[in-house]
Design a protein around this nucleic acid. Structure first.
Lengths: 235, 235
DNA sequence: ATTTTTAATTGTTTATTATACAGTTAAAAA
DNA sequence: TTTTTAACTGTATAATAAACAATTAAAAAT
């Protein structure tokens, strides 16, 4: 036997929701679609899965193509599968969401895609079911970021506490008390204070911090809810 | 244009991790695979996605086939896509996890699959990458159940607090103080005390409770972490 | 009828964590 | 030297979590 009998075959694709933060707004990176249908329309960066790669590899390849970047935070989000989501032929697409440090992104790398950053609040119309993908990605980001320290992936390696607070406030569209915020983030033990200050945002300047990578990885899975002793969480 | 040019096509499948709780142990439902390769081996219930259905529909169809049940809790888990995960031909499989009330399940419905419930601690070897799927499903169940009231999906509509506690202790492989447990679950406002008792487990008997469905749906998304005012979580 | 047995039920004290709230300080600009 | 602006810090109170043991209902045994 070298094939399953009487089954319908189709294409598989990935689409990437790429988040970035410019210090002011949460943004996502869109491109102008380069082929029919919907050629020239704003679209998520995506592509077909090749025969010799899995979905993670496909999305990493595609992200590298667009941004020139490797090893960013990347997580499988959801697989979208309505039979008619692509009008040409059946294509099942797995959405990934990526978090990148906007400063590392260099515009010129992929001029052919005409990429642009759009604030989440002012997204253009997207093709196919990509609107839904973006909505789900936003929800997932909020959800995960409330429990895990993934927001740091959106910041440069040196950042200030006011920057971090701006990011949280922007993602959750809320305001947080400065005193309580710094108390909490410092209490995590995740931040190492640097000697230098960032003078760009104020006269006084704000101290830079860096992630304590050991604590970061050690505490990444921890969360604070219902379960008495998280170390018991192993069968 | 009626096809994309020069792309490789493949099969899409779904595999279901079906959880149940017998009052003692958390279990999953496995079947004996009915066709080659690996015919006769223990396997998750699954099947190929048809041309006219999406993944949710496919998994619902397959679950109905096996259990006779409709409308159970069902959630897309992850899409598994290693090029060689199925030795016959490329098949990308999306795993779903399902929670069902073991009491509603009737054995005779699908004798052709030879289904059996296995305690999570004593699973047989599974085919392909299904071991990995089950691991991920266990992790996801623990994760979600710590934040959302999904455990009730595993219990009959009338249940006792000791039953509920057993379930939590079994899923998290831990012990919880009885007084604190009942205080917390009662404080959620999710439980309505019934007049009758369940006499099966003890001489004294334990009062039955039912879910307050309004509060259940209203509070399903709520969680207790970092964000000051969850009602602000709308852009 | 009384006693025994078993698991269900209930409450208080203490520790920890979250929340509310405002004055001081560093440093550039005026 | 003064003004301006945003960074920085601390305390009191409220809410929540955690630790801990005695009582009670009801069947079973005597």
């Amino acid at each position: 036997m070298n094939r399953y009998y009487k089954q319908s075959r189709g294409l598989n694709a990935v689409d990437c929701i790429i988040f970035g933060f410019d210090g002011e707004n949460l943004k996502i990176l869109l491109i102008k679609r380069g082929f029919e249908p919907e050629k020239g329309k704003w679209s998520l960066m995506g592509g077909f899965v090749q025969g010799n790669e899995n979905l993670d590899q496909a999305s990493n390849r595609i992200l590298k193509q667009l941004t020139g970047l490797d090893g960013m935070y990347l997580e499988q989000l959801h697989t979208f599968s309505d039979p008619d989501r692509d009008p040409i032929e059946r294509t099942i697409s797995t959405a990934y969401f990526a978090l990148i440090d906007l400063n590392k992104y260099e515009t010129q790398i992929s001029a052919e895609y005409h990429p642009e950053w759009f604030a989440l609040k002012r997204l253009p119309k997207l093709i196919f079911d990509q609107q839904e993908m973006v909505e789900m990605a936003k929800r997932r980001l909020r959800y995960k970021a409330a429990l895990h320290p993934i927001m740091f992936e959106l910041l440069p390696s040196r950042f200030t506490i006011p920057q971090l607070q701006n990011l949280y406030e922007s993602v959750y569209n809320t305001t947080i008390d400065k005193r309580n915020f710094s108390k909490r983030v410092l209490a995590t033990g995740l931040l190492i204070k640097q000697d230098e200050k960032d003078k760009s945002g104020s006269k006084r300047g704000a101290f830079y911090y860096q992630l304590n990578m050991q604590n970061y990885y050690a505490n990444f899975q921890s969360f604070l809810n219902f379960i008495p002793n998280p170390t018991h969480l192993i069968f």
